[in-house]
Design a protein around this nucleic acid. Sequence first.
RNA 1: GUCCCCAUCGUCUAGCCCGGUUAGGACACCACCCUUUCACGGUGAGAACCGGGGUUCGAAUCCCCGUGGGGACGCCA
Length: 458
Amino acid sequence: MSQVRVRFAPSPTGFFHIGSARTALFNWLYARHTGGTFVLRIEDTDHARNSEEFLNVIYDSLTWLGMTWDEGPKVGGAYGPYRQSERDHVYKEYLQKLNDAGRTYEKDGAIWFKLLGERYEVFDDHRQKTVTKVKAAPTVIEDQIRGHVERVEDEDFVIVRSDGTPVFHFVNVVDDIAMKITHVIRGEDHLSNTSKHVELFKAFGAPVPSFAHIPLILKQNGPGKMSKRDQGALVEEYQRRGFLSEALVNFLCLLGWSPKDDSEKMPIKEIIERFDLPGVNQTNARFDEKKLAHMNMVYVLEQPADRFVALAQAYFDRQKVFAEGTAPTPEYFREVLLLSQPKIKSIEELPAYTSYFFREDFAYDEKARAKALGKGEPKVRLQELQALLATADFSSDAALEEAMKGLATSKGLGFGEYQSVARLAVSGTNVGPGITGIFRVLGRAKTLARIERLLATL
RNA sequence: GUCCCCAUCGUCUAGCCCGGUUAGGACACCACCCUUUCACGGUGAGAACCGGGGUUCGAAUCCCCGUGGGGACGCCA
């Protein structure tokens, strides 16, 4: 059995698109599933704006998503170089093969690939000009996802531009041959190009790789496929916003592929085991950020404490949440985060969710204030709490809870009577972690000071 | 316009290949429960086989035609 070799071949445009990420992912999954090789090849043939910086966007995103490549830039391999801008000698050599076989000709200074068959002229009313066509037999594509596809490739096409640079169709096929690629897994937008590619493979006398054209990702609002300009289309955006890469990967896997039972959240190991080309759908999938958000929440909730804190720390640093010299101690920061973790859905809501832990001059939310102070005897409740907390045991949530419940019971009131005013006093809001947890993390001094601050306004 | 691909709840999908299901799950939405606020969680509801022909005792499932959606028609990749 021959070893599977797949490749992901992005062009460094400065963006790493969610659709590209999924194409990369399906290639990577297939390589890992089959024990094959995942090759990264940079298609930077015709780009004036082809800088290291743009390449780093690709490397960073792939790395962040956990897709390590076995051959390619940085890691090398037996079939390098892996940047097309460095492979001119290979293209010259292959062009010579085509010349020798009599399958090229020059026209308008460019080199064209000559299809086999009788030529005739016809007026193309879409392009509004007369074109030369070829009476060619249909090209057959046996696609692993689409099945048997036939398409007539009936026009010669340019393979080397008049400025001497080779075009995509040519370099793509040449590199696939030279790099011994066995499976071409790419977006369905390339299906129509495939007949050109197959004809080139045949002209080279090279074995035609197995094709698998995966469905496209459609934009969530409006018509058409998702493009770089669309909201939420860039991988780096999710990275910046503190999404968990495992969540994004898991979500992307489910866009166009299904394990065929009801499994959704799966560790990558399991996805690798279960992923296969025949399981890929044929229908385009609409990107749904709500479902991604849900997947992300599921992953956020189950993060081990250390990783959760590290992710949050990185996010706070990137967002410069704390002004110079105002950062809390790591111990305090950690306590606040662990108190919040079970309550939130994403890393990015953490700064707002925890802001009152890091400042004494927080504002009272108007609605929360009206609600908490609007009924009963808030002032009396606060005074009772003040007295209780002056001597209460702050060492655990349970101890504080017991004390507060005791107070409530002794006054014949519900826990909520104290909870709502206390929450307003210590946080200025009516949402947040359990009140006793807030007390404990804040500590006695801050808690009492905050109650005093609210009391002073009544 | 030509060619290619596709078609199950609003969305992602299972079921289709090998016809017989109360057409299943998840997200979202709604209701209720849990509760110490807010989340989480639990329970429940509503929600789909694009249309028309055919084949068949029987069609989401097989075939054809429409329609709809997507893609490709560059000296871009």
